[in-house]
């Protein structure tokens, strides 16, 4: 076994201990480093920079040369071994697959319906009101007829917002504060008016449509796929690997290579090692 130092053969990054342990009887650390590189080459993950040093070592080390052949045989055996097949699990696991969509679609349809109802309420109020102002009972510079027009305009606007939100769901979140404030203020005032006998319960009941629309908007907005961090596995939170980023590589910036140590070459297509 050669005791010659392999010139220029770098030690494996992050594993200074690798070379000493777990290779009983393999001799000096050079052999372990050499074999690690040989092993990587078998997987198409070799580092071309280390290649010359490894070749130089192989010329002087028959043990490593023999090891390379044995390792190649083991690799070939592994890859040509009959593939073990597990049972088909589709039917067993499918019940736990997300079914969010159906509920979400239901909520969107319901929201659109509520929007249409709200629009109808608005139009009905408008038709009933047009031309009925009598000029009495001014309030804040407008007579009751004009107050009615303003109310009708609001009802129409909210109905349209529900229908639009059911279609373009991404805009719903922006609508929620407006709706929320409107409903809270309206609920408090309606309560006071009801207590004071200033409004018929029937009229207040029409506001329930708004409330239902608000709840549905909330449901649709919340059921949208969230933008939080990925789930538990450490791998997801681990160092971002520039290579093999797959389909999302266009969406996410590639990690800097500097902190990754040796970056593996792209894996060449499988070839037989024999």
């Amino acid at each position: 076994m050669s005791r010659d130092r392999i010139r220029g053969l770098p030690r494996p990054v992050g594993n200074p201990q690798t070379v000493e342990d777990d290779l009983p009887g393999m001799g000096p650390s050079d052999c372990a480093a050499c074999r690690e590189e040989l092993s990587a080459e078998l997987d198409g993950e070799g580092d071309p920079a280390r290649r010359p040093a490894v070749r130089a070592h192989l010329r002087t080390c028959p043990a490593c040369t023999a090891w390379r052949e044995q390792a190649a045989v083991v690799t070939r055996l592994t890859r040509t071994a009959p593939a073990e097949a597990g049972p088909d699990l589709v039917a067993r696991v499918l019940p736990s697959a997300p079914r969010g969509s159906r509920r979400r679609v239901g909520a969107r349809v319901a929201l659109a319906v509520v929007g249409v109802v709200q629009i109808v309420v608005g139009i009905a109020a408008l038709v009933g009101l047009v031309g009925h102002g009598d000029g009495s009972a001014m309030l804040g510079g407008a007579d009751m007829a004009h107050m009615g027009h303003e109310t009708a305009a609001w009802n129409l606007a909210l109905g349209t917002a529900f229908v639009a939100g059911a279609w373009w769901t991404r805009h719903l979140a922006g609508l929620l504060p407006v709706l929320g404030v409107f409903i809270v203020v309206l609920a408090v005032l309606s309560g006071l008016d009801l207590a004071a006998g200033r409004v018929e319960p029937d009229r207040v009941a029409t506001h329930a449509v708004l409330l239902v629309g608000f709840v549905l908007s909330l449901a649709v907005a919340r059921s949208a796929p969230r933008r939080g961090p990925g789930p538990a596995p450490r791998a997801v939170a681990g160092p971002r690997l520039g290579e093999d980023a797959g389909p999302d590589s266009a969406r996410t910036p590639l990690a800097s290579r500097d902190d990754l140590g040796p970056v593996a070459r792209a894996r060449p297509p499988r070839r037989d090692v024999a």
């Binding site: 690690e36 791998a235 681990g238 970056v263 792209a266």
Partner: peptide, 27 residues
């Protein structure tokens, strides 16, 4: 049949660790 980079991502360790573990497994 995963590449070293993918395997490192699954395990949550540096690629160099996969590299040396595979080599030791082979040994």
């Amino acid at each position: 049949g995963l590449g070293y980079a993918e395997a490192a991502q699954v395990v949550g360790c540096p690629i160099g660790t996969i590299r040396s573990r595979v080599a030791r497994a082979r040994a």
